[in-house]
């Protein structure tokens, strides 16, 4: 007998692509048509969407190009794949049929976490800020898999969360026997993403399990919590998770520094919110 976990793991290994937010694809299409679009502008726009970023990273890390598991930022992927390949790849993406509120909510949550990770790494002067932000952007990608590939279970999880004091992660474990973090890690393995992205994704709710890239995982863990504390976006429940003590010690933040980080994130989130509204309206404008 195959357990539920094994069954899901098997399913994840067959995931070839996931749908992106229509507004982003519309915007990229407009950019792609104007030849002037520079590498940086395209990279920045792709970096705002977890699905497109994952798609580009999947391709550049595929065995076909011959450096699997080496590239962990969208800008490096663009340099190696070439602008035309990335443009074509993005424009061929499938998109969510509906701009459901929860889809936008999760998109905002992911982007917010990426922004937070960027601010934290800068403030702590950690190297590889762009890589850590990418891990934070992708941290909840497992939730997209559940939503798209396990529709019926996703509905049961939603009912559990809405019905009581359970977090989405607890509900996932009850229904699926595995949570979105682990599923995200499985996808990362299937898609040959670098270990420095996989580990923070897979351990973002339980950073003590992260051994090789514990610093990065701690940053992603905190980024997720700060975005949930701020109430920005919607990641499936409205509960702020507890900061794990080991991760907190690892980051070694004083209250003063944390205050500065929170202030900077909150200011930046206003811009992110405006960007999100713009993306949503660029989709409506098209339809």
């Amino acid at each position: 007998m195959q357990t539920k976990r094994e069954e899901i793991n098997r399913m994840v290994q067959d995931v070839k692509s996931l749908p992106a937010l229509p507004g982003i694809v519309v915007k990229l299409r407009a950019l792609a048509e104007s030849d002037a679009a520079s590498l940086q502008i395209i990279a920045r726009l792709i970096s705002s969407d977890q699905i497109l970023s994952a798609k580009v990273l999947k391709l550049v890390n595929s065995p076909f190009y011959g450096f699997p598991g080496r590239v962990s930022t969208v800008s490096n992927a663009l340099i190696l794949l070439g602008v035309n390949v990335v443009k074509a790849l993005v424009l061929s993406s499938s998109i969510f049929d509906l701009m459901e509120e929860n889809v936008v909510g999760l998109w905002e949550h992911s982007l917010g976490a990426g922004v937070a990770a960027n601010i934290i790494t800068k403030r702590l002067a950690l190297p590889d800020g762009e890589e850590i932000s990418t891990a934070a952007l992708l941290h909840d990608i497992g939730k997209v898999i559940i939503k798209i590939k396990l529709k019926e279970e996703a509905e049961r999880i939603r009912l559990k969360v809405d019905g009581g004091e359970v977090s989405i992660r607890e509900a996932e474990k009850e229904v699926l026997d595995v949570d979105h973090a682990e599923i995200g890690g499985w996808l990362g393995k299937t898609w040959c993403l670098p270990e420095k992205l996989i580990e923070p994704i897979a351990c973002h709710h339980d950073p003590v399990r992260s051994v090789t890239y514990a610093d990065r995982t701690a940053v992603v863990h905190l980024s997720d919590i700060l975005i949930k504390a701020s109430g920005f976006g919607y990641s499936g429940d409205d509960l702020v998770p507890r900061i794990q003590e080991a991760a907190w010690k690892k980051l070694n933040l004083s209250d003063h520094v944390l205050r500065e980080i929170v202030d900077e994130i909150e200011d930046k989130l206003i811009e992110v919110k405006n960007f999100s509204l713009e993306i949503q309206s660029s989709h409506e404008g098209k339809v």
């Binding site: 070839k16 999947k58 391709l59 061929s92």
Partner: peptide, 12 residues
């Protein structure tokens, strides 16, 4: 045809 390039790039 509008999406064929991306499809070929991602699955050569």
């Amino acid at each position: 045809f509008s999406r064929v390039l991306g499809a070929l790039y991602s699955d050569p």
